[in-house]
Design a protein around this nucleic acid. Structure first.
Length: 597
RNA sequence: GGCCCCGUAGUUCAAUGGAUAGAAUAGGACUUUCCUAAAGUUUAGAUGCAGGUUCGAUUCCUGCCGGGGCUACCA
């Protein structure tokens, strides 16, 4: 497809050169798909050349059009409407393009590892809180961008940083010690992350009660909050943890293990994975030494109270604290350490991509500037994959108001809904018993992933648990359904090897067929674009476009029953190409395609 | 206060500065002796307001109105 655009750009350029004696710049040559209400396949916007020609846009368009039809074999006709030159591309070209595309093993994907190595960080949840709807967008987005970068030829390393240490962990630990009675996930049958999350909440409850009690006996609020016994106990645990007290470390390992087991289950259901996990407990110290090194090199400054700061006013940002006056680290300290550690672990790494919500945009601007100040050449290529919040009809999710949509719950609900719908529609007869469970997951989770990924990541989006997730219309299941029908056609036609249809003889394609073919052929360039802009919604929208066109075409273009062999072969090839392109596209969104549904 | 993002049909989302702003859903009217109707056809419906740049602005610039975020020796 890209070849066609390039070919046309070049042709228009030489047309201008030979007609008007000067070439327009490539940016002035705009080639786009012709709108369906006009005749033609590709449209050249002629306004920029009118000045060059010293003639009206219409006249210029006609001259260029006539020239192109004469010179270029693939351009068979043209029409000028206002300032737009619509070109008709030959049937031979389309047959050839289709032929080539179906013979490509991994149509849409570039050779693995042909481009630079990129690390993508995503998920990185707080280990005290079970995953919720917001994490879902993060996880699906990060995974998808990683897959898209891979398909675009990059070598990708998927990672997350696990926030496994600090006062917050000690809070759930102390609460479990005080109120847990030795409970474990296996004794209660509860998912590990849910169990630990529950004790984090118990801590908060107890803490508030203690603060209230202290205040009612005359202590002021600040003192009460600083002296609540349970908080002091948590602090004590933190000190013991840092001193590597074996008992505390054992409890810490055990409870973190529960959380990881819980998360692992959820990641497994989601179908996402990581190549390497970074634990803050292993990286938090390296940040300090990096900051000290930066101080020595003059990149950072120390104040009289011994705290260390970076001054970013030269790049329009503020001063930022890097180490407290007592020498302890802040969030930024750890991020600096982790970033540098990762570049050391992966010497070929070209850049890092951080999938983190847009409320941390400032943080990452600062981080990248700091990395640059520390002399990291890759800093300018690092990217904060910032995404908008997922909002509920009631507004933001608030744990206090119990409006948090739990990730496991919503996924289970999607699966149940998929099962229910399949049953109601009487679809289960053709599905073997043992395939049903994975079908419900494919369809239910596919709907959820597609829903969250079809929106531009930058924008905040609305999620209505009751009404949002549909299985009809512009949805994952709609795309899956049409894929299934296409696969069914190919099965019924007995096509084992698509190459047996080639070489395809050119036949005339009608408007519907051309629209379909062009959509499918654009997969490689859309993946390229999505990789450049870190935007899975482009891929999602293309999958929908192809499917929409396919479904319309399928309605009134017989494939197997078509008697003319040349036409039949072209249609089978189209059917194959579309199903293949959509399967590839959806796989980049983390959505599996069933063979029957 | 300063900085950043967002305002498109009733609703949820599209539109590298290009033609008559596309879909989906909800509403109206239709289509199944035909490769899976979770489908298709059709009808109706939108660029917050005011300027500017341009042959051309949903898109770029300015102001206003409305919504969100950031602005911690928190993570």
């Amino acid at each position: 497809m890209l070849q066609l655009e390039n070919q046309l750009t070049e042709a228009v350029s030489s047309a201008c050169n030979s007609l008007y004696g000067s070439r327009p710049s490539d940016t002035q040559i705009s080639i786009q798909s012709t709108r369906s209400e006009f005749q033609g396949d590709r449209t050249v916007v002629v306004f920029p050349f009118a000045r060059l020609a010293g003639k009206s846009p219409e006249e210029t368009g006609k001259e260029i059009g006539a020239y192109l039809v004469k010179q270029e074999k693939i351009i068979v006709d043209f029409q000028v409407v206002k300032g737009f030159l619509n070109l008709s591309i030959s049937d031979e070209y389309w047959a050839h393009a289709l032929n080539q595309a179906i013979l490509q093993k991994n149509f849409g994907r570039k050779t693995p590892g042909s481009k630079s190595q990129i690390m993508v960080e995503y998920s990185s949840p707080n280990t005290n809180k079970p995953l919720h709807l917001g994490h879902l967008r993060n996880i699906f987005l990060g995974y998808s961008v990683a897959e898209i970068l891979k398909a675009a030829g990059h070598d990708v390393v998927k990672v997350q940083i696990i926030n496994d240490r600090g006062i917050h962990i000690c809070k759930s630990m102390i609460a479990w010690k005080l109120f847990g009675n030795g409970e474990t996930p296996s004794s209660t049958g509860e998912k590990g992350d849910k169990l630990v999350g529950r004790y984090y909440v118990s801590f908060d409850k107890q803490f508030k009660a203690e603060v209230k009690a202290l205040m009612s006996s005359g202590t002021d609020k600040d003192t009460a909050e600083a002296q609540a016994p349970i908080l002091l106990a948590a602090r004590d645990l933190l000190h013991k943890w840092e001193a590597e007290d074996p008992e505390v470390r054992a409890l810490w390992s055990m409870m973190n293990g529960w959380v990881y087991d819980g998360f692992d289950y959820t990641y497994g259901e989601m179908g996402v994975d990581f190549d390497k996990l970074y634990y803050e407990s292993n990286t938090y110290l390296t940040g300090k030494s990096q900051v000290e090194a930066g101080l020595a090199s003059g990149a950072f400054k120390q104040r009289d109270d011994n705290s260390i700061w970076v001054d970013l006013s030269d790049v329009g940002l503020d001063e930022k604290l890097l180490l407290r006056k007592d020498g302890t680290s802040v969030y930024m300290t750890q991020d600096i350490g982790t970033a540098i550690l990762r570049f050391k672990d992966y010497p070929a790494l070209d850049r890092q991509v951080y999938t983190v919500g847009n409320e941390q945009e400032y943080h990452f601007k600062v981080l990248f500037e700091i990395l640059a100040k520390l002399g990291l050449e890759q800093a300018s290529r690092c990217h904060h994959l910032s995404y908008g919040m997922v909002e509920l009809p009631e507004g933001k999710m608030k744990s206090r108001e119990g409006t948090v949509v739990d990730a496991d719950d919503i996924m289970a609900e999607m699966k149940t809904t998929a099962e229910q719908l399949a049953r109601d529609a009487g679809k289960l007869e053709n599905i073997p018993e043992e395939d049903r469970d994975s079908l419900y997951k494919n369809v239910g989770y596919g709907a959820l992933k597609y829903f969250l990924l079809r929106v531009d990541p930058k924008k905040s989006m609305m999620f209505d648990p009751k009404a949002s997730i549909d299985f009809i219309g512009n949805t994952g299941p709609y795309i899956q359904f049409n894929y299934v029908r296409a696969r069914s056609v190919l099965r019924n036609a007995g096509i084992d090897d698509i190459a047996s249809l080639t070489p395809l003889s050119p036949v005339h394609l009608d408007d519907v067929e051309r629209a379909l073919l062009m959509a499918a052929l654009s997969l490689p360039s859309v993946i390229e674009e999505a990789a450049k802009s870190y935007d899975p919604s482009l891929v999602a929208n293309l999958c929908y476009d192809i499917t929409k066109s396919y479904s319309r075409w399928y309605q009134d273009h017989p494939i197997i029953k078509e008697e003319d062999e040349a036409i039949r072969n072209i249609r089978l090839a189209l059917c194959y190409l579309c199903s293949n392109a959509v399967k590839t596209g959806m796989s980049l969104l983390g959505v599996s395609m069933p063979e029957r549904m």
